[in-house]
Design a protein around this nucleic acid. Sequence first.
DNA 1: AGGAGGTGTTTAAACGTTTACATCGCAGAT
DNA 2: ATCTGCGATGTAAACGTTTAAACACCTCCT
Lengths: 362, 362
Amino acid sequence: MVRRAASREDGQRPTTIRDVAAHAGVSVATVSRILSGTYPSAPATRGKVMRAVRELDYVANANARGLAGASSRSVAIIVNSVISPHYAYVAQGVQTQAALEGKLCIVGTTGGDPEREFATVQLMRQEQAECVILVGNVVNDAAYRERMGEYARALALAGSQLVLCGRPALGPGVPALVVEYDNTAGAYAVTSHLLSAGHRRILFLGRRDGYTTQDSRVAGYRGALADHRVPHDPRLEVEGTMERHEGYRMVRERLDAGPADFTAIFACNDLIAAGARQALRERGLRVPDDISMVGFDDLPTAADIELTTVHVPHEELGRTAVRLALERRQDASGMTGHLMLGTHIIVRDSVRPLRGAGDPTP
Amino acid sequence: MVRRAASREDGQRPTTIRDVAAHAGVSVATVSRILSGTYPSAPATRGKVMRAVRELDYVANANARGLAGASSRSVAIIVNSVISPHYAYVAQGVQTQAALEGKLCIVGTTGGDPEREFATVQLMRQEQAECVILVGNVVNDAAYRERMGEYARALALAGSQLVLCGRPALGPGVPALVVEYDNTAGAYAVTSHLLSAGHRRILFLGRRDGYTTQDSRVAGYRGALADHRVPHDPRLEVEGTMERHEGYRMVRERLDAGPADFTAIFACNDLIAAGARQALRERGLRVPDDISMVGFDDLPTAADIELTTVHVPHEELGRTAVRLALERRQDASGMTGHLMLGTHIIVRDSVRPLRGAGDPTP
DNA sequence: AGGAGGTGTTTAAACGTTTACATCGCAGAT
DNA sequence: ATCTGCGATGTAAACGTTTAAACACCTCCT
């Protein structure tokens, strides 16, 4: 009691379960049991305890609770950035489902840096998170998979569960859940949409080799071209990241280099599309009158600019990740699993048939 | 040791500081000291311990650490929703600054429901958060202030700190920090901008009495009208929440009721503006050719639709909230304080002088 | 030679819960 | 009247850290 007396002389200390017990005239065990609810108790005692709790304004100490082995812990989500709408939606889904299951949600951001991602996963392991949800685009080479695989095992050992959300699996035998959506199919669909309108020279904005999301989308783009027997011109694939200003830059640089050598644009996501559209307008080009355009993600911005795009079930992705992780932990049936959610095209007003096109959908 | 043996038979248990100590041949105290870094130690011992940590892949248990009284804890942020861009930006700021200070960030959402907000604050108190940041729009009546004031006191007692971010103070004597931005001045500026262009009938979209943000903005709007000697017509103030679809609804209903009786629109935020713009377009009205429009918040959507708006330092708001809270806690100088950040108008292409207007800025 | 003053390390007492096990009444069966 | 069984409560041992206080050792001074 030495330390307590010393450290408490300055002011009041927060009420503990002991204070409640004393105030209610019962033992701490009884208070604990009544508060956790999962135990029979006499109504009279229950009333006394509840009154004491109210009168003392007691709230339990989550640290102590966690330490002593109470099950309910927290759900961790790790994203590149919170302001990118796609991540925001997934985070919203995670947070909603977590709240529903009575857990709270802790968030980490990486800025897209794998090193920070690793560090954040460690942090979440410290924090005893019940599951760790890793969201989105990342460079996914062998070294990364190997290392993240080890982290997954370490988490499993600590009773936690790694979930990959919107990115491919790490490899066989790695104890991680995967909740994906179909990037390639979406990109295929929306590229076909352009091709059916007669477009042949379609600029792809936002290629970035090695990054999972962008690789899958460029694959869908190429697949559609191939199936429509349109020769693949690598010069039409412009490299860039998935931000608005990159879309602006890519189109700007392209138009600075010479007149438009394309009739349509496939933007790797809607943000790029928005930026690209602005650059086009500054050069007097209108969407869809002069240039057709499609995007990906179906963010609110797409509605603003009347953009035909691919709908992604962002929020469902997040909710499913949490739900799956928690139910897997309950029955402890193997800790791997793979779920692929569907995507579908949303047609708005950003594509016009190419004048004099010969091939309006066979 | 009974429980341990029983509960551990199924598999390996996570490594504890004791394992590390044993493996390195020192005591747990030494390991703890070396890991926390804030203590002298012999390089040889340090090496042994670090090697043991690496070999065993040890990470400390945050619950135990928190219980035992280590200082570094977490920062809590409570917002209406994560997908609303304004909140997302503030959250990003909070998360950034928290990471910078070596703390992690736990997020709660309320969906705008005061009851859920209270519950979430309690949750954060349980979690021993170092500070609790409450963000944004809320109905701020006497009952609310009274109750939240008590929560603030409870937090203070537990060594935590309540921060109100982007909303007004609770009252004198309540131990809470306030970090605001100037809603009224911003609304005044942007309304004046419309008035200077000759507009007299300005539709205000998104009035909602009792809600802090909306009240301040409508006050700025009215103030500007008064100063320009334009009679105030309550029929021009349309009620609604601050979402995109509400902007759409409000304009839609207005135009359904009869021809436009306004020449300009002040949307309470950019999301409303985006929705309103869409409704206008569906009725063949163009911004700015037919109707002038201004918004508030300077979200990315505003750039897309070329909207003149008020810039709000969202991220700085979040960063400042964290910074202030943590430094206040250090020197423990009174736990109240008030900071007002500035806003400024961003002129884009959504306002045209009114034809035949007599008053093009004196 | 006998401290004094540093280092570096260990010992052990907290921190605030949960929960296995022990205990205590008390009703109903024998 | 005694035993059985059960429901309600109490006792005390964890949980994995931090940290004050004690301790051991070494060097330097007088």
